[in-house]
Nucleic acid binder design. Structure first.
Lengths: 255, 255
DNA sequence: CCAAAAGTGTTATCCCTACACCCATGG
DNA sequence: CCATGGGTGTAGGGATAACACTTTTGG
């Protein structure tokens, strides 16, 4: 492994200013329920830049592509370095390569990923207990990002567009939930992503008819009528992406 | 401009074997109507490799990314070098970066493009008249490609999947036609891409209701009842891709 | 007149939406 | 018993698919 940098695309060495280098960054989504809020909201981790192109600004997690490392491996690695977690979903977003997007020539292969809310909470709790909470990492609601380094605002906008688009025809919403969940929880994920409320009755039917949900015998008991817990049917993959193995495997760590 | 190579991802210099280089390749689709056939079929240009990784095999047109050149510019450039034409549609497909996809480490940013059938025919006629038909370029029907260099078979499969997928929810089919066309011609494009016949009556209604077609006052007179010619409404862009300027501009050369 | 493609009309079906309604639980 | 969310039923609208039908040309 060669050296890598958190915070994409800085100038590693002056001597490299005449070559094109490849960076890999990742837009990482998860869901956070604020105590006062009625519905959860999308949040993502950002990394503070400690070097000069845009030093001090917040940027997407990322690093240089190692010569002996696959693109997706690089995305997973930087994701783990930033969050300590394994994504429930990881997909390539786009390759950004405008000549002027960085002082030196950098092509960024950008991935986007989903993290299960419960895993993030557990991890955050662990950091808090150990007192090792990283100072240069911050989790931010997607609609309050502010001005990011490089072209990262554009990148996040595109990732958000893709997420919202994809939630309509695939089952990525499961990537934000624990392995069992109520239909209301699943619906809240959709509502948080799409930014609008959905009819519970119709949502239930659609979800049930999709064939991707397995009802369990357990119920979530709240302050009212208990709700059945469902599980994601891993067999059904749904026409989701390409016909080949280009697409990432979901390395679900909970199952 | 530095040196470039037709036929992606060969080893430029031995001294570069310790760096990751960026190549840009393009899957170029157009429609060819064989004299005997009843319906046109998808064809694409391939380039014969003249250097050693996979020398002699056919490969996608491509070349090394120049340090002062945008990704899309590189795709357009190699496309022009191969076909002498400007694409009617050009979009990034995927970044391929498996460690073992080439002897040296190469990340290929792959684009896919559409060419208007009439422009390709005109160009081919020009080559034939001038006697300058390139020997190392061959136009092949997509279902008779044979074994290509590198992972290019996978790449073409993915591009085909994307094309077939996209034809269902966008109007890229126009990218394969001249600027005026009959509904039957438009339907044939869809049929060639999707590989199945479509009901002419229903297709007509869908096309008319899409709002993207402008009827002209001209008719195509064949051996039977004349058919109205339509034009593509360039104002309507349809929710097609990302919300920002990441998407390529269609540099249509006919309008 | 005939064949064949251009173009129109009609109907059944499916899916989605809205919304009324019943069910089960904690307080 | 009542408020609240869990869960079911149902009627209307829009899009699609299947296919019968009329129109217009060349031969």
């Amino acid at each position: 492994m060669t050296r890598t940098a958190i915070g994409t695309a800085d100038t590693r060495d002056a001597e490299h200013s005449d070559v094109t280098r490849v960076a890999v960054s990742t837009v990482i989504f998860t869901l956070r329920r604020e105590p006062g809020d009625d519905c959860p909201s999308l949040v993502m981790p950002l990394v503070r830049r400690t070097r000069d192109p845009h030093m001090g600004l917040w940027a997407l997690p990322g690093g240089w592509l190692d010569i002996s490392e696959g693109l997706e491996d690089a995305a997973s690695r930087t994701l783990a370095e930033t969050t300590g977690l394994t994504p429930s979903y990881l997909e390539q977003l786009y390759a950004f390569g405008a000549v002027d997007r960085s002082p030196s020539r950098v092509v960024s292969i950008v991935y986007w990923a989903l993290l299960r809310a419960d895993e993030v909470d557990a991890q955050a709790g662990g950091y808090a207990a150990a007192g090792t909470e990283p100072e240069n990492v911050r989790w931010v609601t997607v609609d309050r990002l502010g001005h990011l380094a490089f072209d990262h605002n554009e990148i996040v906008d595109y990732a958000l567009w893709r997420l919202r688009n994809k939630v309509g025809y695939s089952r990525i919403a499961h990537g934000l939930l624990a392995d069992t969940f109520t239909l209301a929880e699943l619906r809240e994920v959709y509502e948080a992503i799409l930014g609008r409320r959905l009819d519970p009755a119709n949502f239930r039917r659609q979800a049930e008819n999709s064939g991707s949900l397995i009802p369990t015998d357990d119920f979530r008991t709240g302050s009212h009528r208990p709700a059945r817990l469902y599980r994601y049917n891993q067999d059904v993959e749904l026409a989701d992406r390409g016909p080949l193995d280009i697409r990432p495997r979901h390395e679900s760590s909970t199952s």
